[in-house]
Design a protein around this nucleic acid. Structure first.
Lengths: 127, 127
DNA sequence: CAGGATCCAACTGGATACTG
DNA sequence: CAGTATCCAGTTGGATCCTG
């Protein structure tokens, strides 16, 4: 175990910095409109590419592919290819993905709870 | 109450669509990296513009201003100007803002909980 | 059907300079 | 100090065409 570090040593701090920058990177990947909407729409279901495109209103082909690849890379969605003709590809949330989904749910709830608040705040501000 | 609608009437659906599109708009405003980081760093504190810029690592002057205006417009942060020389401007989360912050906290917790999962998923994917 | 590749218009965001 | 305005390089993202 050559890479194991002694407690309190300077390399511990290096590890912490590395973890932080990784966390930050993940946050940047995930904290974007399309990624969160995809995760929310996926929910507990298993959806095909085209179904997802219909569900996530307004998303383009390209953005959907791009975000699905990113989510797959981070292990938040699982991609299953059925070797049929025509091909059938299905996406599901993994366990980490479902964990994230819980927080997105909370964000959606929040949005609806403060809809009124926000609408009036906007009116006030826009004058 | 001229605008009040009868249950099940067609205008009810119109109202729902309006609420949905508003919710979607708010979601799009808020579901972005910088906005969420600002909310997270503000937390329970009251911070000045320059303090925020130091705390939210990597954010540019312009992005900070822009996102603060947006958050203010939506009533998530309160902006207080002290008429001194030099000027002192402070930002705090409002109650709706603190509500949103709770969900961002959850997202941050999630990030750290699955750091390892995600790192290995990435390695697997990148080969 | 899923998705890669390409083109390009539109927008983003950083740097800089300026104001109260 | 806080904030606006401007410029502009670089990125984004939509449309389109193509393949297995």
């Amino acid at each position: 175990m050559v890479t194991q570090q002694v407690e309190g040593g300077p390399a511990d701090e290096a590890d912490l910095r590395r973890a932080d920058s990784l966390a930050r990177e993940i946050f940047s990947d995930v904290a974007n409109k399309w990624a969160l909407l995809i995760i929310e729409m996926l929910g507990e279901r298993t959806l095909r590419f085209s179904e997802l495109r219909d569900e996530v209103e307004g998303i383009s082909h390209k953005m959907l592919t791009q975000n699905l690849r990113m989510l797959e890379r981070n292990g938040l969605v699982e991609r299953t290819v059925h070797p049929t003709v025509p091909p059938r590809v299905e996406y599901t949330l993994t366990e980490p993905g479902r964990g994230l989904r819980a927080t997105v749910d909370a964000m959606c709830d929040w949005t609806h709870r403060y809809l009124g608040h926000i609408e009036t705040a906007r009116h006030r501000f826009d004058t």
